[in-house]
Structure formats: structure tokens, C-alpha cells
Amino acid sequence: MASQGTKRSYEQMETDGERQNATEIRASVGKMIDGIGRFYIQMCTELKLSDYEGRLIQNSLTIERMVLSAFDERRNKYLEEHPSAGKDPKKTGGPIYKRVDRKWMRELVLYDKEEIRRIWRQANNGDDATAGLTHMMIWHSNLNDTTYQRTRALVRTGMDPRMCSLMQGSTLPRRSGAAGAAVKGVGTMVMELIRMIKRGINDRNFWRGENGRKTRSAYERMCNILKGKFQTAAQRAMMDQVRESRNPGNAEIEDLIFLARSALILRGSVAHKSCLPACVYGPAVASGYDFEKEGYSLVGIDPFKLLQNSQVYSLIRPNENPAHKSQLVWMACNSAAFEDLRVLSFIRGTKVSPRGKLSTRGVQIASNENMDAMESSTLELRSRYWAIRTRSGGNTNQQRASAGQISVQPAFSVQRNLPFDKPTIMAAFTGNTEGRTSDMRAEIIRMMEGAKPEEMSFQGRGVFELSDERAANPIVPSFDMSNEGSYFFGDNAEEYDN
């Protein structure tokens, strides 16, 4: 993207840094990872977990959730003011799984939030270390993106479920800051804005008074975040219109849905970061690795190297396929839920299948599930090659597409044709070009129609051997075009429920 120079890199967003050079960025990201790792080690000690239990991804998720809940100030305040039966607002906890007599047992633990905050700050040299908290939120978000298709949420806001490739980060909490905003897809931002506008339509006082002023500035800020994701002048001009509207209503909703559809071809720039579970960072720190000293990046080879040398386990339900569970977590670790499966298959070195073909449910185990038949197995999170994460949407291309997802959002900077089903997408653009945004709409449609099938995206960008740390010898991959490109292809993934 041309304006790259004016933006802070995501590592800076990730670490609240002012302008830093590459070495400083690597050190501050490393410091953040160190903090998460030290916190995780301490929690495993508190909970008396064995090494194996500490490497269980379900335990990692519970521990991450506990610290996120302990620092969720708004919710904590709300819980104190609106006490609900049987919930102690000062405590947080969740299921911890232990191996007892050759069987997995679930144990519900409860801790004072104050105590968890103390352990977290102690692991982070006394700081609140917001960057580390956001990092864990993005890992949870990436896992949700890989596990669930947001059909219901899309339909509720009037969008087409086939636009799911635009929904990265749709389950990120509001408090995820600049680093969170960077990884949100165009569809996620559109959905947040539509929800806001709908509230304004239904509630006369939404934009009024002292609160209304705050609401208005939040609305304009979200519009600017979305505008910054678009790469064409016409899309940005249309966002200006939406932002400046005196009284946002149905016309703005129409414009936003139009823009979301246009992003299936004229893709937005959305950041991709490899955020790993805390149970990967903990053992690495415990083994003596100093992330701050060595430096770390979320968008280069580092996460690949770390996963190459990590042992992570997962509980497996009786009829689940461990290899499929591994694929789910591998995609989440690489922030690749909406990437082209052919690119992923090449990088991973084994075939990556669409969601609907995987015999696996989510990673988390519900409290009512029976533990008797639970097994555990090693997650295979290694890769054959590594590639640089991208934040450009890439230019655009036609490809055989599917009944489910009709476009992709690249996660890796790797040369390819970008699949999208042009006739299906263009069919949504018939007729409606009147109104105050008509010239911009016409211009956007013209650009979409001009998108050429034979153009290559990320020209000359390749993948790298894991021994090639400096990215000196790019390998331009070859793809098996007979395979499906979309992950949520004609899909039956479970729906995400809060």
C-alpha cells in the first residue's frame, strides 16, 4: 500500500510504541512475548500442572481467558453494579484439565481477579502490559475465525453469508486497541457500523446529549479505520460520505453494504499476525530463551520457528480426527482463516481442507461434555516452508469459486491468482447506482469489472525454506488448481455463540 510509510507498523501498534527502528520493534515485541511466557509459567505453578498438562491447549485457553477477564475493567465495573446470582464479580476462573488415573478430569478453578492481575503485572515488570493482553485477544479471535462461520451475524446486519472472507476479527472485544483495529476485516468494521446506525434509528437519543457526542466521535473513528483499509480513492470518498452524514440511517447502511461487497474484489488491507497460545510461549521462556534479547516478529519467520520446536497437546472428542484438529489450530496460529487453501497447503506441506470436510468441533470443551471418553493427542503445528504475512489485500483475480465463501483475504505475501467468483459478486451490483453516491458507485463498479483474471497478485513473492531466515531465496510455489480455494466452501461450520 502506498501510504505504508505514514502508518505505524503493526509491531508498533502491538507494543504501543512511538516510531521505533526494526531492532527496537523486535525487542519490544519480544518483551511482550516474554511477559506472556513468564505469566503462563507462574500460572502453571499456581495450578500445580504437570509439564504435559501445561502444554494442553484447553488449559492455555482457560488461563488466557482468566487474565483477560481480570483486566476487563468495563465488564468488571458492570458486574459490580449489576450483581447477578451466583456470579462473584471479583473472581474469575474456568475449567482446568488434569490427568488422573490414566483419565482426563475437569476441575473448575476460581481465583481472585486481583490475584491474577498481581501475577500478570509481576510477570511483566510491574506494568499492565496491555500489548500482551491484546495479543491474547487476537489469538482467540484468530481461533474463532478458523472455527466458526459468522453466517447468522452477517444475515442479521443485512449482509450476504458468502462475504465471510471479510469477517476477520469479528469476535475481537471493543477494547483491543490499535492492534485489534489493524486485524479487523472490512466486513467486521461494516458490521460494527451498521449495528451502531441501527441503534440510532431505533433509539432517538442515541446521537443526542453528552453521551451522543461520545457516540458520534466513536462512529467517526470507526469510519476512519474502515476508510484506511480501502485502497481505492472511490471507496475512500464513499467512506467520507458515510462519516460526514448528519443523521446516519438506511442510506448509510446501503452504502456500507455496497462497500463491503466491493471489497470482495477491490480488497481492503487487513493486517495478519501470528499470535500463538500462551502454552507455546511459556515452555520456550522456561527453556531459557530470551525473546527480548533475541527479538521477535509476528509477521516473519519467528512464529514458524517457534511452532517448529513446540509440543502442544489437545483434548480430542471420541469421533474427532486429531489431524483435522491440528489443521484448525495451525490455521489459527498463522492467522489464515480466509487465505486461499492452495497457498496454505503449499506452505504447510500437507493438504489443507475446507472447514466442512474437517471432523472436528471447536477447541474448547463445553462444561456439560462427558470427560470419560476424552483422549488427548499432539497437535501437528509444523510447516514445510515459511512466508511473510501481508497486510495488503493483493490485486484481484477471477477463479472458480464456491457456493460458500466467494473470495479470499490473503494472509501471506505469496504470488498467486486470487480466487473470487466474479459473476456471483457482480450480480449483486445491478441497477442500484442512484442517489448521492452514484458517481462513486459507478466508478467502483467500473474498477471491479476491469479486474483481470490473468493478473498475478504479489508478483514474484515466494515462500522460503525454514533454514532461509533472511528470506534470501524465494520459492514461487505451484498450486494444484483442481483443489478448492475457499475454506468455508459450501460450508456447515458451527455458528459462533458468545
Rank of each mutant, 00 (worst) to 15 (best):
S3T: 07
Q4N: 15
G5M: 02
G5S: 15
G5L: 06
T6Q: 00
R8T: 02
S9T: 04
Y10K: 14
E11A: 07
D16I: 05
R19T: 07
Q20C: 02
Q20R: 10
T23D: 00
E24M: 05
R26M: 04
A27L: 12
V29P: 05
V29Q: 04
G30C: 12
D34A: 14
I36R: 10
I36A: 12
G37I: 03
G37W: 12
G37Y: 04
R38T: 08
Q42I: 03
C44Q: 06
T45C: 14
E46K: 05
L47F: 01
L47P: 14
K48M: 14
S50T: 12
D51T: 15
Y52T: 15
E53C: 09
G54L: 03
I57M: 09
Q58W: 06
S60P: 02
L61E: 01
I63P: 14
R65F: 07
R65W: 07
V67T: 08
S69R: 05
A70M: 02
A70Q: 05
D72F: 10
D72H: 05
E73I: 15
R74E: 09
R75L: 00
R75F: 08
K77L: 10
K77I: 14
Y78I: 12
Y78T: 01
L79A: 09
H82D: 00
P83R: 07
S84T: 14
G86W: 02
K87A: 02
K87G: 05
P89K: 01
T92W: 06
G94S: 05
P95T: 05
I96Q: 04
K98C: 10
R99T: 14
K103H: 14
R106K: 11
R106G: 07
R106D: 10
E107L: 09
L108C: 07
L108M: 10
V109S: 06
V109R: 06
V109T: 09
V109A: 09
L110Q: 05
D112N: 15
K113P: 02
I116A: 05
I116P: 03
I116M: 00
I119K: 04
I119D: 12
W120R: 02
R121Q: 04
R121P: 01
A123F: 03
N124K: 05
G126V: 09
D127C: 04
D127Y: 05
T130C: 14
T130G: 01
G132L: 06
L133W: 02
L133E: 04
T134C: 14
T134K: 00
H135R: 08
I138T: 05
I138D: 09
W139C: 09
H140S: 12
H140K: 03
S141W: 07
R150N: 02
R150T: 01
T151M: 08
R152N: 05
A153Y: 06
R156D: 02
R156V: 11
T157C: 13
D160W: 12
P161R: 09
R162C: 02
R162Y: 09
S165C: 13
S165V: 03
S165G: 12
L166P: 02
M167H: 08
M167S: 11
T171K: 04
P173K: 14
P173F: 03
R174H: 04
R175Q: 02
S176T: 09
S176R: 05
A179V: 09
G180R: 03
G180N: 03
A182D: 03
V183S: 08
V183P: 04
G185H: 11
V186Q: 15
G187K: 09
G187Q: 03
T188G: 11
T188E: 11
M189K: 05
M189L: 15
V190E: 01
M191K: 07
L193Y: 00
M196P: 04
I197Y: 03
R199P: 08
G200A: 05
G200F: 11
I201V: 15
N202Y: 09
R204N: 07
E210W: 07
N211M: 15
R213S: 05
R213W: 08
K214W: 11
K214V: 10
R216W: 09
Y219I: 03
M222Q: 03
C223H: 09
C223K: 09
N224V: 14
N224M: 09
L226Y: 09
K227Y: 09
K227A: 10
K229I: 05
T232Y: 13
A234R: 05
Q235V: 02
R236S: 06
R236D: 01
A237V: 01
M239H: 05
D240P: 00
D240Y: 04
D240E: 11
Q241V: 04
V242L: 04
R243W: 04
R243H: 01
P248Q: 12
G249S: 06
E254H: 08
I257C: 14
I257Q: 03
F258P: 04
A260N: 03
S262R: 06
S262Q: 14
L266G: 01
L266S: 07
S269M: 09
V270C: 09
V270F: 04
A271F: 10
L276I: 10
A278V: 14
V280T: 12
V280C: 13
Y281Q: 12
Y281E: 14
G282Q: 08
G282R: 06
P283W: 13
A284T: 08
A284F: 14
A284I: 00
A286Q: 14
A286Y: 05
A286M: 11
S287P: 08
G288L: 06
Y289A: 13
D290F: 07
D290L: 05
K293V: 04
K293S: 14
Y296M: 11
S297I: 07
S297A: 07
L298K: 09
L298C: 10
I301E: 07
P303L: 02
L306P: 03
Q308C: 12
Q311Y: 02
V312W: 13
Y313I: 10
S314C: 14
L315M: 15
P318W: 08
N319F: 07
N319D: 00
E320L: 04
E320P: 02
A323Q: 13
H324E: 07
K325S: 00
K325Y: 08
Q327P: 11
L328I: 13
C333K: 01
N334C: 15
S335R: 03
F338A: 12
F338R: 05
E339H: 04
L344R: 02
R348I: 09
G349E: 11
G349H: 14
T350W: 14
S353Q: 07
S353E: 02
G356T: 07
T360M: 02
T360N: 07
Q364M: 12
I365V: 10
I365E: 06
I365M: 12
A366V: 01
S367T: 15
N368C: 02
E369V: 08
E369S: 10
N370L: 12
A373H: 08
E375F: 14
E375I: 05
S376A: 11
S377P: 05
T378E: 04
A387E: 02
A387P: 05
I388V: 04
R389H: 00
R391L: 01
R391T: 06
Q398F: 13
R400S: 07
R400G: 09
R400E: 11
A401C: 01
A401Q: 02
S402M: 01
A403F: 04
A403I: 04
G404L: 02
G404H: 13
Q405H: 01
Q405R: 01
I406T: 13
S407P: 01
V408H: 12
Q409M: 07
P410G: 06
F412I: 14
S413C: 08
R416V: 02
N417Y: 09
N417Q: 12
P419A: 12
D421S: 14
K422T: 12
P423H: 13
I425W: 01
I425T: 15
M426G: 00
M426W: 00
A427H: 03
A427G: 15
G431A: 11
G431M: 13
T433V: 13
E434V: 12
E434G: 03
E434D: 01
G435P: 10
R436K: 10
R436H: 10
T437N: 08
S438K: 01
S438M: 11
S438C: 03
D439Y: 00
M440E: 07
R441Q: 09
R441P: 05
E443R: 07
I444Y: 04
I444S: 03
M448D: 10
E449M: 08
E449V: 05
A451C: 02
K452H: 08
K452M: 07
P453A: 06
E454Q: 14
E455W: 00
M456Q: 14
S457Q: 13
F458H: 11
Q459R: 15
G460K: 13
G460M: 12
G460N: 03
R461W: 11
G462V: 00
S467D: 06
E469I: 10
R470S: 11
A471M: 01
P474D: 01
I475P: 01
S478M: 01
F479W: 00
D480Y: 14
M481N: 07
N483H: 09
E484M: 07
G485P: 00
S486H: 02
S486F: 06
S486T: 14
F489C: 05
D491R: 06
N492G: 09
N492S: 14
N492E: 03
N492D: 10
E495R: 12
E495W: 06
D497H: 06
D497E: 08
